[in-house]
Design a protein around this nucleic acid. Sequence first.
DNA 1: GAATAAACGAGACGGTACGTCGCGTCTTTAC
DNA 2: GTAAAGACGCGACGTACCGTCTCGTTTATTC
Lengths: 211, 211, 211, 211
Amino acid sequence: MGGTTKASAGVRLGGRSARVREAVLRAALELLEESEVSDLTVERLAGRAGVNKTTIYRRWRDLDGLIGDVLLQLGIQRVPIPDTGDFDRDLAELAESLREAITGQAGGKVMTALAVAATRSERAAEVLRGFLRERFKKAEIIVTRAVERGELPKNIDGIAVIETLGAPFYLRLLVTADPIDVTFSQRAAAAAAAAARAGVFRDGAPLVALS
Amino acid sequence: MGGTTKASAGVRLGGRSARVREAVLRAALELLEESEVSDLTVERLAGRAGVNKTTIYRRWRDLDGLIGDVLLQLGIQRVPIPDTGDFDRDLAELAESLREAITGQAGGKVMTALAVAATRSERAAEVLRGFLRERFKKAEIIVTRAVERGELPKNIDGIAVIETLGAPFYLRLLVTADPIDVTFSQRAAAAAAAAARAGVFRDGAPLVALS
Amino acid sequence: MGGTTKASAGVRLGGRSARVREAVLRAALELLEESEVSDLTVERLAGRAGVNKTTIYRRWRDLDGLIGDVLLQLGIQRVPIPDTGDFDRDLAELAESLREAITGQAGGKVMTALAVAATRSERAAEVLRGFLRERFKKAEIIVTRAVERGELPKNIDGIAVIETLGAPFYLRLLVTADPIDVTFSQRAAAAAAAAARAGVFRDGAPLVALS
Amino acid sequence: MGGTTKASAGVRLGGRSARVREAVLRAALELLEESEVSDLTVERLAGRAGVNKTTIYRRWRDLDGLIGDVLLQLGIQRVPIPDTGDFDRDLAELAESLREAITGQAGGKVMTALAVAATRSERAAEVLRGFLRERFKKAEIIVTRAVERGELPKNIDGIAVIETLGAPFYLRLLVTADPIDVTFSQRAAAAAAAAARAGVFRDGAPLVALS
DNA sequence: GAATAAACGAGACGGTACGTCGCGTCTTTAC
DNA sequence: GTAAAGACGCGACGTACCGTCTCGTTTATTC
């Protein structure tokens, strides 16, 4: 492995820890881009990051925690909540950026990796759920604003709208593997919008009476 | 091993092999019901089924294949495609039976296990996708009939309707872990219905123009 | 590494387990002969034996157990208890074979390795002690016979005689690292003999009164 | 390495350094007294001494060196070479103080720890051997005096006498784990004395002729 | 009903990865 | 500027699970 002996000049730029952290996260992204989700092992990761296995365990108790971090880091850079003044358009743009996030090589893989990890580790599950919850919460404002503009009925469950919009993406990502293209993305947005307009997500919406 | 159950007198249809196969599949279901998805290991499974590890590998090549079989077996018993004469009601009942399938202890776990397996094994992925595809295809007739009855516009993508209905279930199962209760299930059905009625799934439905 | 694919012809000589066991024990001896005691690691050992690390752990719970086995195997081949009819000569020959056992490359190293292991593992300690106890016990007969011949006083603690003879070897092996040559070995034998003759090891031998 | 041996009253040599040194050595003794030899790790030691790990490495390069120092410090306080005017009694008292040193909780453990360390580190081995050599050398005078008094034949190898006396202690400490009590200790002394009197350790003592 | 082929039981093995421990070095921070 | 704090590289540990292999034993089918 030969240590970090690079230090091309006398650079020595402070914060080894930060450097290591960064290197590992970047390596994780690279590995996910290049290979299968199941190929993301701690050992390979360490090798790729030029870091020792133990270091990874010291910093992130386990792989699950690390993947969570990768996701969070990815998430930070991509939270454009549209505000175009038009509900349909807002949803359409939201769907589009979700599509891009999931479609961009790493994006979907990270999500998948975390979903798999959540299967084994409660911590990973918590990170995953927290991430989604926050994302949905943030997007909820799109609905709120539409309500304020009178585009939607009041007492509407904004989170449910966003969930309806997002769900098809995750189905294709995690189960179906069908392509997630713009047409698909826009249809998901349109469906959520139509349902919202139809009042499906109102708090006391009447349901079909089952037997 | 399990009782001899060798069935009525002269039948003789495949003796031991069938018995073993059944024992293993049942054991898999039991294990999934009782414990975490990640606890379903070949060794535990063999122990539970009272069968040797090698036997499992002989029959199913690998664990992924086995899980696929478990799913298929589960699926066989539960494909009630409603035909009530009413589109909304059909979707509502479909959603309800999907809810039951996913909510019943084993159901969701099998799905999850297979989704995880699909991550590692192309074979598992193929089984998973094939299963969903078939299920969706079968349910498509609900839409077809609604179109014939004039409840829905023509040229509608039936599969997409079903996909929209089902997606939220998988989101909650695989990612969010939010409860999948009747209210949720009915809302998913209503949303799909509303979107279908609004013409979102027509073949040439106009999309919002993105920048 | 590549497995035991040797099987030069269709030989297929039964007993893989036995073969593996033998390969590992031999490899352990080789490693001890060639390198330092502290270089005997499970990983290196596995590599040398052409066996997988896991296999070693499966067979011998830990390295300590294995070293014990190595010792026992060595011990089996070297238990010549002399019976020359002469006490001094018996001890002299015993000392000589002890010298050879300890001096032969592997011999001393195995002993040392086990002594070190005994520090960490009660099991190793037990093996080590049991080995010595048995060895001493076996040699005790030399004293018994000498007593019967009238060469030594009665009521003598035979084990103590052997212990006195052996002790200097272990001191040099484990602590002092001084050479263990024939002169040394013979002096140890002579000392034990002299002390025995002087009645030091009689059951009720008078001791010097301290303070 | 070499102890600071500050000694005479007002010297005041080194303030904090000396304190740290002392704290670490004391902590090492405490740890050895309380727990197993293999539990003496640098980290635990640092924690116990209230000192940083790095500090230990700065002062002692490695753990082996430190253990050596602990031994030396222990040794300093316990070197009473008896001079009673009687050979047997001198040996008896020597044996007794050796017994006490080895039996006192820390004593044997330190010795054992160093013996283990000597296995890995040539430095530790050197310290260990040096320690023993010096101790034996110091005790040699007992023999010298006995020769001068005419109690023993001339040309006798004093060191060998002491070695013979000490060896059984180390055998029991490092290998056998049999109890080291006063009876045992006195027998060791008596054996060495008897052998010495018998002329076993004379320079040209005749040996039994081996085939 | 005996012979033969297929499936199974038992269990060791190679292999990959895991997560941990301890040593000794090196950086960063704080005094 | 020096020492404490602590992250890191490194090597090894012992474990879990995967899927393979061999050999001997049942079981089912075939003659």
